[in-house]
Amino acid sequence: MGQSFLTAILTHRDARGVEQQLAYLRSLAPGSRFVVVHGGEREEFERLGASGADAVFVDDPRLRTYGNISLNEVVASVHERWVAGRPEVELVLFLEFDLLILRPDFEESLAGLVARSGAGMLGKAAGPRNDTNWPHYLRHRRDDALNGFVERVSTREDRAARLGCFGPGMLFRRDAFDALASVIRDAPPIMQEVMMPTLVHHLGFAVADVNELGDLYAGIRWRPELELDEAIEAKRAGRTFVHPFKRMDLLEALAGAA
């Protein structure tokens, strides 16, 4: 899909690990556009820059608070750097570094789901959470900062609606991403799995659960971490994505496995 699909890799890894990942992705999908959002050590980001990677550094401690990560600055940075001035961008995928792409046609698969669903955002297990025991919803339902912010920006009748999704693999349609970026800098730094789908919904866009549309994200799980042999097995089975796979040093071996 070329320039109309942007994949933003969210990573904190050292420069060598990021380069290994970029080499793998570019070999797998040479026509795709991959950019890097680095939230780790600045020295590693600077080493990355020297290698020619198209990357931006986001200095936000909320990117490193596991279990409570905020992507507000990431959304703003990605939009400013790679989307705002490029009308050809139609879809934006947030690829956490340990979300492994196994097939070169991942863009077509995701674009197909967006077209079928008519959604402004796709996510794994994305949907309403008000009637659930989801801990992130329960933790934030009385959050004055979140509730006040949603009240101010919402286009919906039900201002109390809260949504959630699993973090890896959030995909945004251009118009929803533009709307998100227009308000995100004023948003409280709430956990991404709550904030992103909730905000997209309240800005007037549909949020769809990939699990309801097919098995494209069936290989994505919370834990345990995948071993190389599991990743190879998934590749042979025709899976498009698996998560979590953290061994950037093994990507070359994975690429070589038939």
Partner: peptide, 10 residues
Amino acid sequence: VVHFRHVHLE
């Protein structure tokens, strides 16, 4: 009677 359903549809 209350009933429960999966959130994770997979």
